[in-house]
Computed example of a mutant assay.
Amino acid sequence: MSGRPFVKMNGCGNDFVVVDALSRPFAPTSHEARAIADRSAGQGCDQLIAIEPSPTADAFMRVWNADGGTVETCGNALRCVGWMLMEAGGRDRVTIDTLGGPTVAKRAGAHRVTVDMGAPRLDWTEIPLAEEMDTRGIELQVGPIDAPVLHTPGAVSMGNPHVVFFTESVPADDFVQGAGSLIENHPLFPEGVNVGFAHVEARDRIRLRVWERGAGLTQACGTGACAALVACARRGLTDRAATVAVDGGELEIVWDEATGHVLMTGPVEVERTGVL
Rank of each mutant, 00 (worst) to 15 (best):
G3L: 11
G3M: 09
V7N: 02
G11S: 06
G13V: 11
V17L: 04
V19F: 12
S23A: 15
A27N: 13
P28K: 00
T29A: 07
A33C: 10
R39T: 06
S40N: 14
P53S: 11
T56L: 14
T56P: 00
A57P: 01
R62C: 04
W64D: 02
N65I: 09
A66Q: 08
A66C: 03
G68D: 04
G68V: 06
V71F: 01
V71R: 00
E72N: 15
T73I: 14
T73F: 09
C74T: 09
R79G: 03
V81D: 08
G82N: 06
W83V: 01
W83Y: 13
E87V: 10
G90L: 03
R93P: 00
T98K: 08
G100N: 07
V104G: 01
A108P: 09
H111S: 14
H111N: 15
V115L: 04
G118N: 07
A119C: 15
P120Q: 07
L122Q: 05
D123V: 08
E126W: 02
E126N: 10
P128T: 10
A130C: 08
E131D: 12
R136A: 15
L140M: 11
V142G: 00
G143R: 08
D146K: 12
P148C: 05
P148V: 09
V149P: 01
V149C: 02
V149K: 13
L150N: 09
A155V: 10
S157N: 07
M158S: 07
G159H: 08
P161C: 08
H162L: 12
V164K: 05
F165A: 03
F166R: 04
V170A: 08
P171K: 01
P171T: 01
V176Q: 00
G178E: 14
G180N: 03
E184I: 12
E184H: 09
P190D: 13
G192E: 03
N194Y: 11
A198E: 07
A198L: 10
E201M: 08
R203G: 01
R205Q: 14
R205N: 09
R207N: 11
V210H: 07
W211C: 04
W211I: 07
W211Q: 02
G214Q: 06
G214V: 02
G216W: 04
G216K: 04
T218Y: 06
G224T: 11
A225C: 05
A227Y: 12
A228F: 12
A233Y: 10
L237C: 05
R240N: 13
V244F: 04
A245V: 15
A245K: 09
V246R: 01
I253R: 00
D256P: 09
D256V: 10
E257H: 14
T259H: 02
T259C: 03
V262R: 02
T265W: 10
T265N: 01
P267R: 03
P267L: 08
V268F: 03
T273A: 11
V275H: 06
V275Y: 00
L276P: 04
